[in-house]
Simulated scan of single mutants.
Amino acid sequence: MSQYPDFVATIDTSGLTCPLPLLRTKKALQTIESGQVLKILTTDKSALSDFQAFAKQTGNTILLQEPTEVEGTVVHFIQKR
Score class of each variant (00 low, 15 high):
I62H: 01
R24P: 14
A9W: 11
R24N: 14
Y4I: 10
L20M: 14
V74R: 06
L63I: 13
I62K: 00
A28H: 12
F7T: 05
D6F: 13
L16S: 04
L23T: 14
F77A: 00
D50V: 07
K56R: 12
C18E: 03
T73F: 08
Q57E: 09
M1F: 13
G72D: 06
T42K: 00
T42Q: 00
Q65E: 12
L48E: 03
G35H: 04
K26G: 11
A47P: 07
H76P: 06
D44T: 01
T58L: 02
V8K: 13
I78V: 12
S14Y: 06
T10A: 13
A53N: 11
N60A: 10
D6E: 15
D6K: 12
L48T: 01
Q52S: 10
V70F: 11
F7C: 03
F77L: 08
A53K: 09
P21T: 01
E69I: 10
K39W: 02
E71N: 06
V8D: 15
E33L: 11
L20V: 11
L63K: 07
P67V: 06
G35R: 01
C18R: 03
A28I: 12
L64V: 09
G59P: 10
R81L: 11
T68L: 09
K39F: 06
I78H: 01
P19Q: 08
M1P: 02
I32K: 08
V37E: 04
F77C: 02
T17Y: 01
S49D: 08
L29G: 00
K39H: 13
I78D: 00
N60I: 11
S34E: 15
E66Y: 09
F51T: 03
G35K: 00
K80Q: 12
T68F: 05
E33P: 00
F77W: 01
L48D: 07
F54E: 06
L38E: 09
L48H: 05
